[in-house]
Amino acid sequence: MEGESLGDILRPIGIIARSLDSISNIEFKEVDLTRGQYLYLVRICENPGIILEQLANLIKVDKTTAARAVQKLERNGMIERRSDVTNKKIRLIFPTNKGKNVYPFIIRENEYSNSIALKGLSESEQKQLGELLQKVESNIAGDWEYVKAGHKRNY
């Protein structure tokens, strides 16, 4: 972090996120997943029957972005949308067998990436890093909700 202030933690977090995203996009081509779709598929597999708005909130994207990703996954046969039994207007999202079969591959990649990222850290350092990152995530999530609701942050 030479040349950066100690408080600028977003730069390395961004580099880590973009690096892992690039790796995943290359490796997931073999299972018919394109840019970032694996994030959606994982959340759908973990939450079968989720609705689009909940999915968008989990991933921290706007509803339009989530809708485009869901449409691509549906066209690719990874997920399917079904009408809710009590309210036909509500569309529930489920993984298909194809999506369920890809899910373990994504999880293995995630576990491997975690092991690489945490290499050289003691168990207590890993725990501390996890706890600190959860605090950072919570802070940012609060701002995300605030801005999403139409407010402006005061810099």
Rank of each mutant, 00 (worst) to 15 (best):
E111L: 12
L73D: 07
K100Y: 01
Q128H: 07
L118S: 11
A149L: 02
S24R: 13
S22V: 02
T86N: 14
L133C: 03
Y146F: 15
E27G: 02
K148T: 14
Q37V: 00
D21I: 08
A141L: 01
I90E: 02
N87C: 03
M78H: 15
Y40G: 05
N76W: 00
G36P: 08
N25Y: 00
H151E: 06
S115K: 14
G99S: 07
S115H: 11
M1H: 06
I16V: 09
N110T: 09
I93Y: 12
N47I: 02
K88F: 03
K29A: 14
R68L: 11
Y40A: 11
I16R: 13
G142A: 03
I50Y: 05
Y112K: 11
L92Y: 02
A117P: 01
I79K: 05
G3H: 12
E30M: 10
W144A: 10
A67Y: 11
V147A: 05
S24D: 05
N154C: 02
V70L: 00
K135W: 03
E125L: 04
R75A: 06
P48S: 04
L6T: 06
R91A: 05
Y38G: 03
E30C: 09
Q37A: 02
N110C: 08
E109W: 15
L92S: 02
R68V: 11
G99R: 05
G142Y: 06
R43P: 00
V136W: 04
R35C: 03
R108N: 12
T34P: 01
L73Q: 09
K119Y: 11
L10P: 00
Y146T: 02
S19P: 01
Y112M: 05
L52F: 05
E30I: 11
N97M: 07
T96G: 13
K89T: 12
E74G: 03
V42R: 13
Q54H: 07
Y146I: 01
K63Y: 03
L33F: 11
G3Q: 09
D32V: 06
L121S: 07
R11T: 14
K89F: 09
L52A: 07
I23G: 03
L58N: 13
P12G: 08
G99H: 06
K100I: 03
A149I: 00
P12F: 10
I90Y: 02
Y155H: 11
S83M: 06
K88Q: 12
G120H: 12
V42K: 15
V61T: 09
I16L: 14
K119M: 10
L55G: 08
Q134H: 09
Y103T: 09
G3T: 08
I9T: 08
G49D: 00
L20V: 07
S83Y: 00
R108L: 06
G142V: 01
V102Y: 05
E2D: 05
V85M: 08
N114W: 06
P48D: 04
L10R: 11
D84W: 03
Y103D: 06
D62H: 15
I90T: 10
Q128R: 14
